[in-house]
Nucleic acid binder design. Structure first.
Lengths: 140, 140
DNA sequence: TATTGTTATACTCTATAACTATA
DNA sequence: TATAGTTATAGAGTATAACAATA
């Protein structure tokens, strides 16, 4: 199959790489949670006191899209929320022990996935790849 | 914001890079077509005589998902289809002049986007990045 | 006036399963 | 029996716009 003028373009190869990586992730998670949603949970854990809006922003979601997700997390007992003391409009998101547990339970899987990549690339190229991917987010 | 143990992982950075790149693409295309759908059109152009199934496969779509898309392409006059001579079950997809025109009309936009990336990375790192992205698709 | 979270809504993309016609 | 294309369907994820409460 010939991708024509798209061949060897970052735009195409990035999409294919991401598609395959996400597919692998989904298989291992068995539909339990999307990569982006797992990231939300990790953001909540590692940034105590964050509001919904800032979580949404760094997760690349609209704040309205976060609402049903946080509801689901509450239902599964992964997070709780409370009104911010300094601003009554805001909610503070809080990870629960069950939420930490969930993160921990899947952490090994993700780290193995990542380790396979690192092994395939070697430590130097792996670091270079991460650097490139971050640079790609900067502006170009 | 702290991404915790996900920090500097290919899995996360790849998703963020892809998300931003696609957002930029969508802006330039102004919702006219998704990157993946444009790719389908380019595949049809550059692989005359291909069946729907093989197009779907290389576009990373289920063959059922391709049906409404091809219908839309036919409606816009970008492609035609005919029964394969050797296998009456298969359809052959054919690009039309209007389809080629559409590809051509957007080609400059895509190439500019790609050029910006190349300029930001420099030719050597750019090639390295493409190589890495392809390697990522191989198996890890 | 602007912002936070929420709701209602609608849209888009996608896959699954079942069908048909061919092989 | 298996495969190509199709259909109907359902599901997920997302954003937009409007709203109440608060700043």
């Amino acid at each position: 199959m010939d991708y024509g003028f798209l061949t060897d373009m970052v735009g195409l190869e990035l999409r294919k790489a991401q598609s395959q990586t996400e597919k692998k992730f989904d298989q291992l998670f068995n539909g339990d949670l999307l990569p982006g949603h797992y990231t939300v949970l990790v953001l909540i854990k590692n940034n105590p006191g964050s509001t919904q809006s800032s979580i949404a922003q760094y997760a690349g979601l609209d704040r309205s899209s976060l609402v049903p997700l946080l509801k689901q997390f509450e239902k599964r007992g992964f997070i709780t929320r409370k009104k911010a003391t300094n601003d009554a409009r805001s909610n503070i998101t809080i990870i629960t022990p069950a939420g930490e547990d969930f993160i921990q339970r899947h952490r090994a899987t993700i780290e193995e996935l990542e380790h396979n990549i690192k092994k395939a690339f070697g430590p130097k190229n792996y670091s270079q790849l991460v650097k490139f991917l971050k640079q790609l987010q900067d502006h170009p």
